[in-house]
Design a protein around this nucleic acid. Structure first.
Length: 556
RNA sequence: GGCGCGUUGGUCAAUCGGUUAAGACGCCUCCCUUUCACGGAGGAAUGAGGGGUUCGAUUCCCCUACGCGCUACCA
């Protein structure tokens, strides 16, 4: 009987949640869901000096937005709490393990002050070895319980002298483990330094906390970024000394997300420099007041965000790139995760968002688009936001007509009623408008440009697009058009187009020469959906008023 | 410097010894469209270098180069 799969994401609440962090969450989440396990959020707030107000809430909110909510966490305590390491420390969870390590000879007290450590690094720094570490050789020269008189150690301890507890890494051993992504990875103990386990303030470092907590929380699989690989031997030794290697979770070190140009880890700075978000949501550092934009506020859909992150380092081998979270859960596997880092490509990211905007019904993002319209001072009449009670009858008839005969077979019990659900939820008039333009929108704010003119007359008209080819005959045509539109009885795209073309024929002008001017009059420029669809949605009054307005501009 | 990890088009990448080395983004051309898109067709563009192993290497091994990560009482 194998244990229940349990994974955790253990961020440090020091700032905004980075792309790479969300991807780590995602892989954790997908693996947990795929194997019917639990996904846990644990806050690594062991460094009091780096605590940032609001960061924890921000992380939780980001996960919520992305739809990657934990099964257990500070907000949703389970049986393995508390879920903040500061609180776990308060319960004394770590000291006893550090003490055990000392008793067993796997750790020791070190009394060196930060200044002494600094002096040591300076003293032993050479061109050959620019970063000397506190290791099995250098510790002989330092003030620790391994190389001091036991009586002196006791005396210092009794006197309350500040100390840290360091792991004792002895040379001569090979530490190896099987990484789920990289396979066999090994280190020799002689090259690993004596990492601090327990700090002078009594808080554990990440190294101690991660193994103690993973053990206590019964974590079965631990995924983290590749930058953690070098400290893996420390964690493995700790597992070996404290709980036994057989209890250790399976490790997977995820490849890094790299900056698009050049090399190196993607940072917030790169986003600022190149003009794209790096954090999940907007984040302002409370200490510096430095703002950073988020994917959410830039107009990414959570579905697209998750999708593009999943593909940054993983694929299912079929070439499929568009996946819903459910599909990802069904197909995700660690052995298809890349070993090498991936450069982040913002153009591709926008492509994913575009695909999801097209794929999802406008109703799934209309609320957010509505806010964007409001922010731009574009008022949407309340009647446009009311969802019709039943499906549009014309649409229903259309679907009925397209049905294959077998569907109406009474034997099968299928009729038009069976098809109604496939129409999906009905859309509000506002959402119908969004549907009309969504294939032109990569980011949510694009809707303002692409659909704003439906609700607000364009502020500027691209007269230059009309004027060079303008003529008295065309002017006459549009004056007559206004008159005809006032009389039009069937205000729908098809009738409007038919009437328009008949008039053009009568006036002996090619319709093509008239369509562009009409478009510019209605939307202000050379863009947008079919011009008669626009007129149909705009309604008689607004259509006529916009034509008249531009006609006035052309006269001037 | 040491240690570790990595390296297929500009980018994301498939290939698990034998292929004309997929596909996608972006770019270019054309078609559709009396706008912009969407859609469709096509194009340019890839195995870091050197040794092995093998009948045969992008694929397995070694070396080199390059890149990245770590080298804190930060995570």
């Amino acid at each position: 009987m194998s244990k229940k799969v349990r994974l955790r994401f253990a961020p440090s609440p020091t700032g905004g949640l980075h792309l790479g962090g969300v991807r780590t969450v995602l892989y954790n989440y997908l693996f947990a869901r795929r194997h019917g396990g639990d996904f846990i959020l644990r806050i690594e707030d062991t460094d009091q000096g780096r605590y940032v107000a609001g960061a924890e809430e921000y992380i939780i909110e980001s996960l919520k937005w992305a739809g990657l909510e934990p099964d257990e966490g500070p907000q949703k305590p389970g049986k393995y709490g508390p879920y903040r390491q500061s609180e776990r420390k308060a319960e004394g969870l770590y000291e006893k393990y550090a003490q055990q390590l000392i008793n067993d000879g796997h750790a020791y007290y070190a009394f060196d002050t930060p200044e002494e450590l600094e002096a040591m690094r300076e003293k032993y720094k050479t061109t050959e070895n620019p970063s000397p570490t506190y290791n099995h050789e250098l510790r002989r020269k330092m003030r620790n319980s391994l190389h001091m008189d036991p009586a002196e150690v006791q005396q210092l301890l009794k006197a309350g002298t500040p100390y840290v507890i360091r792991i004792r890494m002895e040379p001569g051993q090979e530490v190896s483990f099987t990484d789920m992504i990289r396979g066999e990875v090994s280190f020799s103990t002689g090259t690993v330094d004596d990492k601090v386990l327990l700090k002078a303030d009594g808080m554990p470092t990440y190294h101690l906390a991660v193994v103690v907590d993973d053990y206590l929380m019964e974590i079965t699989h631990a995924f983290r970024g590749e930058e953690w690989l070098p400290s893996a031997p420390v964690h493995i030794q700790l597992w070996k000394h404290l709980f036994g290697l057989d209890k250790m979770p399976h490790w997977a070190h995820l490849p890094l997300i790299l900056k698009p140009d050049g090399n190196g880890k993607l940072s917030k700075r790169d986003g600022d420099r190149l003009g794209f978000p790096v954090f999940a949501m907007n984040w302002t550092d409370p200490r510096t007041n430095e703002p950073a934009t988020g994917f959410r506020e830039t107009g990414f859909l959570p579905e697209a965000f998750v999708n593009l992150l999943a593909m940054l380092g993983w694929n299912d081998g079929t070439g499929q790139e568009l996946f819903s979270i459910e599909e990802l859960i069904g197909r995700f596997s660690l052995d298809r995760v890349h070993k090498g880092g991936a450069k982040f490509d913002y153009e591709k990211a926008k492509w994913f968002n575009h695909e999801w905007i097209k794929k999802l019904p406008a109703s799934s993002y209309s609320a957010q688009v509505l806010e964007l319209f409001k922010a731009q001072g574009i008022h949407i009449p309340p009647t446009s936001l009311i969802r019709p009670e039943s499906p549009d009858p014309t649409k229903l008839a259309e679907v009925a007509a397209s049905l294959p005969p077998v569907v109406d077979d009474p034997e099968l019990g299928l009729g038009i009623a069976a098809v109604i659900p496939t129409l999906g939820p009905t859309l509000t008039p506002f959402e119908e408008v969004l549907e009309l333009v969504k294939e032109r929108c990569h980011l949510l704010p694009d809707f303002v440009q692409q659909a704003g003119f439906f609700y607000k007359a364009p502020e500027t008209i691209d007269i230059a697009a009309i004027k060079p080819k303008w003529s008295d005959a065309k002017n006459t045509f549009f004056v007559e058009l206004v008159r005809q539109l006032q009389l039009e009885t069937n205000w729908d795209a098809h009738s409007l187009e038919t009437g328009f073309k008949e008039m053009a024929a009568a006036a002996m002008i090619k319709p093509g020469d008239l369509l562009m001017p009409l478009r510019v009059m209605l939307v202000g420029g050379k863009f947008g959906p079919h011009v008669f669809d626009i007129a149909a949605k705009l309604g008689r009054g607004e259509t006529i008023s916009r034509i008249k307005h531009t006609l006035g501009l052309l006269e001037a």
